[in-house]
Amino acid sequence: MNVDKILKRYNSDRENLIQALHDIQDNTEGNYLRTGDLKKAADYFHMSLSEINGVVEFYSMFSKKPRGKYIIRVCQSPPCYIKGAFNVLGELKNLLGIDLNDTTKDKLFTLETTSCLGACDEAPVMSVNNIIYGKLNTEKIKNIIKHYREEKRGK
């Protein structure tokens, strides 16, 4: 979707900045915020580039680098840690053949870590583009990855 159009959905109060950035990122192939779009947003919200950059850099959900279609974020906070979060991470690395913060060659998956996702009663937990999956085990992880690989093929 066109960035100007996304911006126009909001009035130019700075209050709407973070919401607009979400929308822009979600609608950008590669799940990230492009330089040109940030410039447009800065203009739209009457901010300097450094201010908008400071905001983008602060929040862990935003990225300035292109990422995969699906962003897998593995929770590393204590409750998930207790339930084997590091194993989950290890399995995902193996399964996807990438390291942390890398993207698979087919641009399908990016592997990240995150702090608590608020589903700790289901620990260990990860999210794929903000769908939260809990009670992870080897098989479930495999299924989830398979699910997304197929979803991609289906399209």
């Binding site: 109060d13 700075r14 209050e15 900045l17 950035l21 905001v55």
Partner: peptide
Amino acid sequence: LKKGAGAYVCGEETALIESIEGKRG
């Protein structure tokens, strides 16, 4: 409704306010 963007500290009320204002938390 305002969405956060991934920062634990934004649960702290004044950081949250900054975040609503479109700033670093």
